[in-house]
């Protein structure tokens, strides 16, 4: 006893921090975990569980003969995957072309939406009469219910009765034959227009919010140094918006790559090859042929691809910012 009581003072400096660390643990350290547990469990149930089930599905032969009783579906091993990535077969080939269409679509939609959003946000940064009204106006596509918005576009894109052909050919008298918008190759353009129309207000909203946090003194100071608007935008706005941009572009990329609503509502049951986005393609692959194992395998591949892209993107972006 006495030894122990004597010795501690000498070691006090090193012991005390340990004790301090341990003290919260000793009573009720589990409380935060317990409070978090329901949330974690729901996340597991809502996010992870379906993912795991999806991955399991991709390894079984879940065709319509077994759909009523999943347990009886035979294991397929990697068969679903080998069909999917066999790009000489019809299934693989169409998946690959759908993948390329989706890549092109995503780059164009994200790029153009970002540009439009940025332009609008910068223009509306200045105070002028009617600014609030225009801001609200710009946000309408984002606020509209998805289905209602796209179905309106679908009507407008009709060949003989649609507003777009009417405007172009009957009002502006563009020469030539009225084109189909929703079939053939022009369906890509139609889909692009609708997707940008829906997405750019989001970019606008985020960038507008980001612009509020840039102090006006910086602009004033640079103006004193003789910086023109373009230089100001490039050297002040862009770098200071970087944190917003990093997240914004990532989110827009993921949304657009997984876009299902736009082609589904626009094309219904007969998707043209040029409008065959990958999420829609997977839906068709599994629901039309009742082959859910194959659809699951495609989904898993899509998931891996998105994880890879997101990972690389974040590493590159973070490394750059650390270097800077």
């Amino acid at each position: 006893m006495s030894v122990t009581t004597v010795e501690p003072p000498a070691q006090k400096p090193t012991v005390r921090p340990q004790r301090k660390n341990r003290r919260p643990k000793s009573s009720g350290w589990w409380m935060p975990y317990a409070l978090l547990a329901p949330a974690v469990m729901f996340v597991l149930a809502i996010q992870v569980l379906p993912m795991v089930i999806g991955i399991c599905m991709s390894f079984i032969k879940l065709t319509k003969a077994f759909i009523a009783n999943w347990g009886s579906a035979p294991a397929a091993g990697l068969a679903n995957y080998s069909i999917t990535v066999d790009f000489n077969s019809a299934v693989g080939k169409s998946l690959l072309s759908s993948f390329f269409v989706t890549c092109g679509f995503t780059v164009l939609v994200v790029g153009l939406s970002w540009m439009l959003g940025m332009a609008a946000a910068v223009v509306l940064q200045k105070q002028f009469w009617g600014r609030g009204f225009i801001r609200t106006l710009f946000l309408i596509p984002y606020a509209l219910p998805v289905y209602a918005g796209i179905i309106a576009w679908k009507f407008m894109f009709q060949k003989d009765t649609g507003a777009i052909n009417h405007f172009l050919f009957d009002n502006l008298h563009v020469g030539g034959e009225k084109p189909f918008w929703l079939i053939g190759d022009s369906s890509f353009v139609a889909m692009l227009i609708v997707a940008i129309w829906r997405l750019w207000p989001f970019a606008f909203l985020m960038l507008m919010a980001g612009l509020q946090s840039i102090p006006s003194e910086v602009y004033e100071a640079s103006a004193v140094d003789g910086a023109k608007p373009w230089r100001q935008w490039r050297s002040i706005t862009l770098p200071m918006l970087k944190p917003v941009n990093v997240v914004l572009i990532l989110v827009m990329f993921l949304w657009t790559f997984n876009d299902f609503n736009t082609p589904y509502v626009l094309f219904g049951n007969s998707q043209p090859p040029a409008g065959d986005l990958i999420a829609f393609h997977i839906y068709n692959a599994s629901f039309l042929t009742w082959n859910f194992g194959l659809g699951a395998a495609m989904s898993v591949l899509l998931l891996l691809f998105l994880l890879l892209v997101t990972g690389i993107y974040l590493i590159v972006v973070n490394r750059r910012s650390r270097r800077a």
Binding site: I83, A90, E177, P179, F180, P272, T289, W290, N291, L294
Partner: peptide
């Protein structure tokens, strides 16, 4: 859709398309 937008569809193309459909059905 192809026909409607002005291009022609010949027998070979039809056969190709039907072969694709056939493979899809066989695969599932």
């Amino acid at each position: 859709s192809k026909v409607a937008s002005g291009s022609t569809v010949n027998e070979e193309e039809i056969r190709g398309v039907l072969e694709t459909a056939q493979q899809q059905v066989a695969a599932s």
